[in-house]
């Protein structure tokens, strides 16, 4: 009896110790975010005098405003939003069309096509970068949002095709047969039967496409050279290391880069966790 009590007690002590450790780790993960945020609101003089760990004495917005003006941050936000939103819409349409053929139609050679789409999605972007850059210049769409939208619509839809095809391949055959017997055309079947019945997967994909595109770096860096066209990650990161950028302005810039992501996280948290675990692919 006593031994049993001891073991439950020690299990309890153990659990508290583990809780403490995990809480410290989780808090430690957040420290970089906290440091960036508290220092974004300090004057450089306050930073120099009191160091990075104290809370700001007053909310100084000078660093944030100065950085905002320097990169025209409202333009970066708008660019990122327009690009990510357009990509999500186009990629979703392409994914649905492809998956309709591969998952529902189950045409010959679909396995090969699926493998091609997966490879298209995992391909390193540097293996496409120079020809895309060259073609963009040739067709005079270099340094436009259009070229970035086109490229990522295809790259994201490659993943979407893979995921949706597997969802659609499990679509009840009876419903498809019934629709066919009722004289439903393929197009009507897609619009009125398949799409309404896969809303959950479509919303997960839309969210992922949006955030992935927002976070992209390599190809937007190459394609968008003028300041007025750049996305948030590019605008924030290429201003780093400019010699007239002071310490608190640098933290303000990092904070401005983080805030949209935190907003997305809060809005999409449920869809995201559902998606990460359902597709278990990033």
């Amino acid at each position: 009896m006593i031994a049993l009590k001891n073991s439950t007690l020690s299990r309890k002590v153990n659990s508290y110790a583990l809780l403490l450790i995990m809480t410290v780790i989780a808090a430690g993960m957040l420290i970089p975010f906290l440091l960036v945020i508290i220092n974004a609101f300090k004057t450089p003089a306050e930073y120099a005098a009191a160091g990075p760990l104290s809370l700001p004495k007053s909310l100084y917005l000078g660093g944030i405003i100065e950085f905002w003006k320097r990169v025209s941050f409202e333009k970066s936000l708008l660019n990122s939003f327009v690009i990510s939103f357009s990509v999500s819409v186009i990629a979703l349409i392409l994914s649905c069309l492809n998956a309709f053929v591969l998952g529902i139609g189950k045409i010959k050679g679909r396995a090969v096509l699926l493998v091609l789409f997966i490879i298209a999605n995992t391909l390193p972007q540097e293996a496409l970068a120079y020809p895309l850059y060259y073609m963009a210049k040739l067709f005079k769409i270099y340094d436009t949002q259009l070229v970035v939208i086109l490229i990522f619509s295809v790259i994201q839809s490659a993943f979407g095709t893979y995921l949706l095809s597997s969802v659609y391949s499990r679509f009840p055959v009876e419903i498809i047969e019934a629709a066919r017997v009722d004289g439903c055309s393929k197009f009507e079947m897609l619009i009125y039967i398949i799409l309404p019945n896969s809303k959950a997967s479509l919303s997960v994909l839309f969210t992922f496409f949006f955030i992935w595109t927002w976070n992209e770096f390599f190809l937007p860096l190459i394609m968008l050279v003028s300041k007025a066209k750049q996305t948030v990650p590019i605008a924030v990161s290429i201003t780093q290391g400019q010699h007239n950028m002071d310490v608190t302005m640098a933290s303000a810039s990092a904070m401005l880069g983080i805030i949209p992501c935190i907003i997305f996280f809060v809005i999409f948290q449920r869809t995201l966790t559902r998606g990460v675990t359902a597709g278990s692919v990033k």
Partner: peptide, 17 residues
């Protein structure tokens, strides 16, 4: 939480630290 950020922004945060 770090996973939700563009890796470039994570780089900016750490470059500053």
């Amino acid at each position: 939480l770090p996973q939700i950020m563009p890796i470039a922004i994570a780089g900016v945060v750490w470059g500053w630290i």
